[in-house]
Simulated scan of single mutants.
Amino acid sequence: MTTAPDELANVRYIVDDVAAAVDFYTTHLGFTLQTNPAPAFADVIRGPLRLLLSGPASSGARATPDDLADAGRNRIHLLVTDLDAEIDRLRQAGLAFRSDVVAGPGGRQILITDPAGNLVELFEPASR
C-alpha cells in the first residue's frame, strides 16, 4: 500500500452526538466541516487529517464489536505552537482537560476529550 502525497489521513471516532462533535472540533480545534449527512455521520478536516465522526446510526459505529468499544488509549495528536495559550483559550471557552501538562524529551502535551469522550492530545514540540 502506498499513500499519495496529497491524500488525507483518515481517523474514525465513534461519537454519541454528531452535531456536538462537529461543533467541538470546528469551534475549538480549528477543523473545517467537509460533509454532514447528520445525524449519522460527519467529517471534518484539519491539515492532512480527515476526522470521521460516526454517530450511533452510522455503519462505522455498528461495525465495532462490543468487546472492543473501549479498547486502547488511542487519540488524535494535534500540534500547537504555544500549548499554554491553547490551554488558556480552551479553558476560557469552558472546556476541561483530562490530564495535567506532561513534559518529556520530545515536548509538552495535555489531553482533552470531545463530547463523546474521545481523547485529543495537544502537543507542543520541544525547541530544537
Rank of each mutant, 00 (worst) to 15 (best):
G60S: 15
G60W: 13
G60T: 07
A61P: 03
A61L: 04
R62G: 12
R62F: 09
R62V: 10
A63L: 11
A63Q: 10
T64P: 02
T64F: 11
T64S: 08
T64D: 14
P65A: 14
P65I: 14
P65D: 13
P65V: 12
D66G: 07
D66F: 03
D66N: 10
D66K: 13
D66C: 07
D66R: 12
D67C: 10
D67F: 15
L68T: 10
L68P: 03
A69M: 12
D70K: 13
D70C: 10
D70M: 14
A71N: 07
G72Q: 04
G72F: 05
G72T: 06
R73C: 14
R73K: 12
R73I: 11
R73A: 15
R73G: 13
R73T: 08
R73Q: 12
N74I: 15
N74E: 08
R75Y: 12
I76L: 06
I76T: 04
I76N: 03
H77E: 13
H77Y: 15
H77S: 14
L78A: 03
L78E: 05
L78S: 06
L78K: 02
L78D: 01
L79W: 11
L79I: 15
L79H: 14
V80L: 03
V80Q: 01
V80Y: 03
V80M: 02
T81I: 08
D82N: 08
L83R: 02
L83H: 00
L83M: 06
D84G: 08
D84P: 04
D84C: 02
D84T: 09
A85E: 05
A85T: 07
A85Y: 06
E86R: 06
E86K: 07
I87H: 04
I87Y: 00
I87M: 05
D88S: 13
D88I: 11
R89G: 04
R89Y: 06
L90Q: 06
L90C: 02
R91Q: 14
R91S: 13
R91D: 06
R91W: 05
R91Y: 00
Q92Y: 10
Q92H: 14
Q92A: 13
A93H: 06
G94L: 02
L95D: 00
L95V: 03
L95S: 04
A96N: 07
A96K: 10
A96E: 09
F97A: 04
R98Y: 11
R98N: 12
S99T: 12
S99H: 04
S99V: 06
D100A: 10
